[in-house]
Nucleic acid binder design. Structure first.
Length: 603
RNA sequence: GCUCCCGUAGCUCAGGGGAUAGAGCAACGGUUUCCUAAACCGCAGGUCGUAGGUUCGAUUCCUACCGGGGGCGCCA
């Protein structure tokens, strides 16, 4: 899946060392542009290689941007920071794009862009299907491991964040040009399947079970397992049969459980609106046949050791309760494989078969140590070596009011489908409450878009590392940093174009005028979309894009209040403002799409 | 015990080696003959957990401590 761009503005410039650089004239983000310009200016003034210089360009409350680089550089060179900043300004490098360049305080360079420069950058972004977002400098094959429910078990609140965050990352990675392999590492193997299969047998065998709602199935099997030694013994034997893979009846029942669960997962994913489908399932069973070879490789590499009868890898730097070295157990004393075996085999598969260079694990924080050990073992094996690397995209818990894991009324973890349906129902209620002139079908569709959007946005808009408190009212509020607020801003823009009876695409060649402060502020926000996307991907933190989109929406509503678009007396600015509206709507629509959230045209 | 993460406004959260730490909600005060008021504007609110250290400069980096949570051998 090669990235191709038909438009000329983002041609790769070949010949640099390592990653290709892009023609800086082509960049829509003025901060990015100015950073390059300043880097060269600093290089000229100091004599240092440009590659070693960071001009530290940031948005500024005092101007459009500020460059703080002079302070650190001056210290490094033992020069006066103010003089250095003034020397850089004196090069005149910024004259063509800035209307004001001032050195302030100890050596800050405050920059104000010319309206013309900003307007041209806006026009460039508007002409770009990617709205100014640069493609990745190095195109990679990325495997994103997310969601990972268990066969024959219900999906619950614990799967919400991994599914929503993973899906957003997949969309963004693809958008900037990476080849992305979605992998749903479902739990479809292991000792629990002994009891699950045996339970199916008790129920009358294949065809007599219905897993469309796995609710009590797992619990029934579990209860029998705990209560009956006889059942327990049968379950153990069944595990052996399963692992042998050649008992037809066992395999048929297992396959049935897997297939029915896949149907159920598809229902959940479909309703939630994520990309995962059954083709993305690569369960633990897939890796099972490759595990003996993996163990042999560990053996050959001299990494396999024995400890208390188990086969282990001693991974340096990890200790147990007693302060003794902690092993990564890859084969239990019983000879059985466990999740370390599976995960290590999986790393090898992703690197060697899929040729992935970026392995993304969207998995909860509690598995951090386990994953670090697996990654380290893979490094020791010489598999997970540059350019291949693994990233644990960890996340905190979804909490209820009581600050504990979100529960259903029965006290168990809230079921994912209940949360999804609850979001849709609340979205519909919100629409009905504000009743517009929509018919039933439209209202239902809109309710789902708003409800699901709110649910997902709540997951994505705060730092994934922290726990967050689930709150229906807050996520569905039309004020604040919520999906409905962003969707509303988009709907208002669509309304303007309906009223004007103007085709959106027709204003995309317009170079807007930016006379009002709200127009400038909006322009600056819109041009930072590129940086927001890349920043989000660098840190695998979708909340960064959320924050940016919220800033865009706020800048737009301020503009909307202050700058009439269609009203009488504003004919002179009409085209220009329509162009700003169009680009705003596109940034909101695209940005939310990258998060897996739809936008309505009317609300 | 060892180890990882978190601690920012009443609440929910951003931010991050630099200039007066930002939003939203709630509260208070305004705005609608006008493109969707599901909105906007204003006002108020914080010794950035505590104490040291590095630095010209720390809320940001380092150390210790306090508070909360996770993990620590044959489940995943």
């Amino acid at each position: 899946m090669a990235l191709t761009h038909s438009h000329g503005v983002r041609e790769r410039v070949r010949g640099g060392a390592g990653a290709g650089r892009y023609d800086r004239e082509a960049m829509a983000d003025p901060l990015h542009t100015i950073a390059h310009t300043l880097r060269d200016a600093f290089a000229a003034v100091t004599g240092l290689p440009a590659a070693e210089i960071d001009p530290v360009v940031r948005p500024s409350p005092r101007a459009d941007a500020q460059a703080n680089g002079a302070l650190a550089l001056a210290k490094q060179l033992d020069r006066n920071p103010r003089e250095l900043a003034e020397a850089v300004v004196a090069t005149g490098a910024l004259a063509s794009v800035c209307s004001a360049v001032e050195v302030a305080g100890p050596g800050f360079i405050n920059l104000t862009f010319t309206a013309r420069f900003l307007a041209e950058q806006l026009a460039a972004a508007a002409a770009d299907p990617h709205l100014g977002v640069r493609p990745a400098e190095v195109v990679e094959t990325a495997v994103v491991d997310y969601s990972a429910p268990n066969v024959a078990k219900e999906m619950h609140v614990g799967h919400l964040r991994t599914t929503v965050i993973g899906d957003a990352l997949v969309r963004m990675l693809e958008f900037v040009g990476h080849t992305v392999v979605r992998e749903n590492h479902v739990g479809d193997w292991g000792t629990p399947f002994g009891m699950l299969i045996e339970h199916v047998v008790d129920l009358g065998g294949v065809g007599e079970t219905d897993l469309s709602d796995p609710g009590g199935f797992y619990k029934q099997a579990r209860a029998k397992f705990d209560a009956s030694d006889e059942f327990k013994a049968r379950a153990r034997e069944r595990v052996t049969l399963l692992q042998g893979r050649d008992d037809d009846s066992t395999m048929a029942i297992w396959q049935q459980l897997v297939d029915q669960s896949a149907d159920y997962f598809d229902i959940v994913y479909g309703r939630l609106g994520v990309l995962l489908r059954r083709n993305d399932i690569v369960g633990e069973s897939f890796y099972q046949p490759y595990m003996p070879a993996m163990l042999a490789r560990l053996e050959t590499a001299g990494l396999l050791a024995e400890s208390d009868g188990a086969k282990v890898v001693w991974v340096p730097g990890f200790t147990n309760r007693e302060g003794e070295p902690l092993p990564l157990i890859v084969q239990a004393r019983t000879g059985g494989f466990n999740y370390a075996t599976s995960d290590l085999t999986c790393v090898i598969d992703r690197v060697e078969r899929l040729h992935a260079t970026l392995l993304v694990y969207v998995v909860g924080t509690p598995q951090s140590q386990h994953l670090q050990m697996v990654f380290e073992a893979a490094r020791m094996l010489g598999v997970l070596v540059p350019p291949a690397r693994a990233v644990h995209v960890n996340f905190g818990n979804v909490l209820g009011d009581d600050r504990k894991m979100l529960k259903s009324r029965s006290g168990e973890p809230a079921m994912l489908l209940d949360l999804v349906d609850g979001a849709i129902a609340r979205g519909r209620a919100a629409v009905a409450e504000r009743n517009t002139d929509l018919d039933e079908v439209e209202r239902a569709e809109l309710g789902a878009v708003i409800g699901i959007g709110a649910l997902k946005y709540a997951e994505l808009s705060s730092d994934r590392i922290k726990d967050y408190v689930f709150d229906w009212d807050r996520m569905l509020a039309f004020d604040g940093n919520t999906a409905p607020y962003l969707q509303y801003a988009h709907a208002r823009i669509c309304s303007i174009f309906r009223r004007a009876d103007v085709d959106r695409a027709s204003v995309r060649a317009v170079v807007p005028t930016l006379d009002e402060p709200q127009e400038r502020a909006l322009a600056l926000q819109l041009l930072q979309f590129d940086a927001a996307v890349h920043d989000t991907l660098d840190k695998f933190s979708p909340h960064r894009l959320c924050t940016h989109l919220f800033d865009v929406a706020q800048a737009f509503t301020s503009f909307y209040e202050a700058c009439p678009v269609l009203k009488d007396g504003y004919e002179a600015t009409r085209e220009s403002r329509l162009a700003l509206c169009d680009l705003t709507a596109r940034v909101l629509q695209l940005g939310l799409a990258l998060l897996g959230i739809d936008v309505p045209e009317r609300m």
